[in-house]
Simulated scan of single mutants.
Amino acid sequence: MTTPTKTSEYRNSPSGSLSVMDYLAKVVGLDVDLQEVTTHNDIYPFIDPAPHFSARTFAKKVVLITGGSRGIGLSIAQHFARAGASLALVARDESVLETTKADIERDVTGARVLALPCDVRDSAQVSKAVASTFEHFGRLDVLVANAAVILPFGTLLGGVDPDAWWKTCEVGLRGAWNFIHFAVPHLQKSQGYVIAMTSVSGHLRLPTGSDSCIMKLALDRLIEFVPIEYPEIKTFAVHPGSVLTDIALRSNAPIPFDTKPELPASTVLHLAAGKADWLNGRYVSAQWDLGVVEQKYKTAIVEKNALVQKLALP
């Protein structure tokens, strides 16, 4: 998470009115990160998607993206389409989904897009969506679990609507689990990828943000399980950076939103192209310069089995 350069007000805090700087002082875990790694808020050379666009790297691949009609999911869909992939896009709002499908097919020559209205919490609907993807395209190579909701910051655990709190977990965690569950047989055959859009919040304790922090923590662990049980499948839990999406706006999160959606989209493209399989089963921040991470940390990360959830011993 980037430290803000100026102070603004966080007026919904339980203590009345906290500045962003005062709020961040209460966050636990901000000091835990890779050291001496260049960070980015936009596309940088090591993950430049242009070569994938020109070579149509994913021309024979099928990519299913949940939460694919808006925000980060939309940017990821656009990147994969430009790289030649066939797309299955999942979202609840059918009208927005159809508009997204039409826009991509208009903007990307030869794009093939399947729109799948679906509630990711409903296992029957998810089973049908995965089956429809396979029936339509004949394969599945990449699953991007991006669907999410989040409660507005500012309410303590004891004062929040319990059903609304749990919905964050149902959409983000159960939604990802549902799609992974039904996609596994297809991804085994294609030796494919699961990429879950997680968050640095899974490693933090953000006051009044427990729903998101706990859900993302569990999502990170889910991503670790998949390649252990299914070695044919590669997985990554990707922190996208602080991207200003509709969900972010509604969250009233007391942080600066300074990351362009093209950064996580390009990172996902890079990972799904097999450019960093040594990070399989691990947490990855899109803001890290992956070239620097590979150069400085690859040996240590692999030998120490780092970037996974575990107890830190002295």
Score class of each variant (00 low, 15 high):
residue 238 V to T: 01
residue 223 I to H: 02
residue 211 D to E: 13
residue 233 I to N: 00
residue 218 A to P: 05
residue 203 H to K: 09
residue 215 M to V: 10
residue 224 E to P: 09
residue 218 A to Y: 09
residue 197 M to R: 06
residue 212 S to T: 13
residue 220 D to E: 12
residue 231 P to T: 06
residue 225 F to A: 09
residue 183 A to R: 12
residue 225 F to H: 15
residue 215 M to T: 12
residue 220 D to Q: 12
residue 204 L to R: 01
residue 216 K to A: 04
residue 219 L to R: 00
residue 205 R to H: 11
residue 180 I to W: 02
residue 218 A to M: 11
residue 198 T to R: 03
residue 234 K to Q: 11
residue 190 S to I: 02
residue 194 V to N: 01
residue 206 L to K: 00
residue 230 Y to R: 12
residue 230 Y to E: 13
residue 209 G to F: 07
residue 241 G to F: 04
residue 196 A to P: 03
residue 232 E to N: 14
residue 204 L to D: 00
residue 233 I to R: 00
residue 236 F to E: 00
residue 218 A to E: 03
residue 183 A to D: 05
residue 190 S to W: 11
residue 222 L to Y: 04
residue 210 S to L: 07
residue 212 S to D: 10
residue 207 P to W: 08
residue 232 E to S: 15
residue 227 P to C: 10
residue 180 I to D: 08
residue 238 V to H: 09
residue 229 E to R: 11
residue 194 V to S: 02
residue 190 S to N: 03
residue 209 G to C: 10
residue 239 H to W: 13
residue 236 F to K: 00
residue 239 H to R: 04
residue 201 S to W: 03
residue 227 P to M: 05
residue 187 L to C: 03
residue 199 S to Q: 10
residue 226 V to I: 15
residue 212 S to E: 10
residue 217 L to A: 13
residue 185 P to T: 06
residue 225 F to K: 09
residue 207 P to H: 06
residue 237 A to W: 10
residue 185 P to V: 11
residue 191 Q to P: 01
residue 213 C to I: 08
residue 225 F to E: 11
residue 218 A to S: 12
residue 206 L to E: 08
residue 190 S to A: 14
residue 240 P to E: 09
residue 220 D to M: 12
residue 199 S to E: 04
residue 180 I to V: 14
residue 215 M to R: 04
residue 212 S to Y: 15
residue 189 K to Q: 15
residue 231 P to Q: 06
residue 182 F to A: 05
residue 201 S to M: 07
residue 186 H to P: 03
residue 221 R to N: 12
residue 205 R to T: 15
residue 227 P to L: 10
residue 239 H to N: 07
residue 198 T to Q: 03
residue 184 V to S: 04
residue 218 A to L: 15
residue 215 M to P: 03
residue 239 H to T: 01
residue 210 S to Q: 06
residue 196 A to D: 02
residue 242 S to F: 13
